[in-house]
Simulated assay, not measured.
Amino acid sequence: MNRQEPGAMSVELSDGRVLHMSTTRPKPSASARITLLETITRRLFDDCPICGDPATNEEHVPPAAMGGEKMTRTCAACNHRLGSHVEADLTDWYDNLITLLRFTGPGIQGARRTARIPLMWTPEDGFALLLSGNIDPAIEEMLRSGEIELAGLLPDENRYRLALLKHSYLAVCLQFGILEGADSDHVRRDLIAARDAAGRMNVPHSPLAMGLTVIRHNGATALASAPLVRAIVHLGEEPIEGVLLAGRVFVSWSSTFNPDQGPDQNRHLQVSMQVGKPISGTVTSVDP
């Protein structure tokens, strides 16, 4: 795994309390049983599985930032352009990151920005931000002031699901060969449309990608060490077949396509915070 941010951690505070934090927000969620069937191995194609052009570039499946390996080849456009349009949102979602984060506070003129920051949750549904590296001193001054306005963006659901569509489609091609038929043609059309968009903000909405069954495992240990494993999830009455990416993200090989379905997400995070006095602490455990 190449995951750079912790999935969970505990901090023992100087007043004796222990603060537990996790990237999983505490809310009711359905549990699912997963059966791992077989590891999907490397396979090279002469033609790009997505668009049919000559396959010239090594492709990580899933993205290297998630722990993927070079599993196949695609064309330069599907590798680089499609990847740049949708995969940043996937890795941000995978690591639970907030982007374009802005801090404003009394006595400080203008907003101060930071790089991507992990968002973590406490068991009481509070949240914590892991600030590390070179932080603008003005942000520290805002925190000491006791009042701060925080604004940022969460990952775009349509884009990260298109990235999951890409990598689950490549996984099925690795397992069974490049598929033909109306369903596969639809997958390729949506991926090519995302690739050929004028920019990331212009990527068209994909009801097909939004209809995928996606389940993320946030446990301390990955479910598999291989980057791609064919798997079945038992959720409800009918088993769902798909692929387990990087041992942590299950993506179905079928979609509950709905033309009217759209992303049910407000990407804009805006919070007014009252900050108390600083408390020192010691990190006692970190889970990947």
Rank of each mutant, 00 (worst) to 15 (best):
R230I: 12
Q175D: 11
L212Y: 03
N57I: 09
E147D: 15
A115V: 02
I108R: 07
I34Y: 07
S84G: 08
P62G: 11
I279M: 15
Q265F: 15
L174C: 02
I108H: 06
R195P: 06
Y94T: 13
C48M: 08
P123N: 05
I139Q: 15
L82G: 05
P63H: 14
W253V: 12
S132N: 13
W121S: 13
E149N: 10
E59M: 00
A65I: 00
K27L: 04
R33N: 11
I232L: 06
L208K: 11
R144V: 03
P227L: 01
N134T: 15
I279R: 11
F176E: 14
S254R: 01
L37T: 10
D46V: 08
L245I: 05
L19R: 05
T41Q: 12
N158C: 01
V271D: 10
E149L: 03
A197S: 00
I215G: 14
S206M: 09
Q270T: 01
D260M: 06
D196V: 15
P49K: 01
V18G: 12
M71F: 00
R267S: 10
K166L: 09
G133I: 07
A151Y: 02
A193G: 00
L228H: 09
G146H: 01
Q109S: 15
I108L: 12
R200E: 14
V61I: 12
F250D: 06
R42F: 04
V249H: 12
A8T: 06
L245N: 12
D47N: 13
D183T: 09
T282L: 13
P278M: 00
R42T: 05
T23L: 14
L170V: 07
S168C: 06
E5H: 10
L179E: 11
T39Q: 07
I215L: 15
T256F: 15
D92E: 08
T104F: 05
L130W: 14
P263N: 01
H217K: 14
A226D: 10
P28D: 07
V203S: 10
N57E: 13
H186S: 07
A171C: 04
S272F: 04
G16D: 04
F176I: 04
D260A: 03
L143D: 05
R159Q: 13
S184P: 14
H234L: 02
L208R: 14
L97S: 11
S31W: 04
A64T: 06
G211V: 04
R102F: 08
A128R: 06
R159P: 03
S285V: 04
A30H: 00
E124Y: 00
L82K: 07
S225H: 06
N96S: 09
S255G: 08
V271H: 13
C75M: 02
W121D: 14
F250P: 03
L37K: 05
L164N: 05
D92S: 12
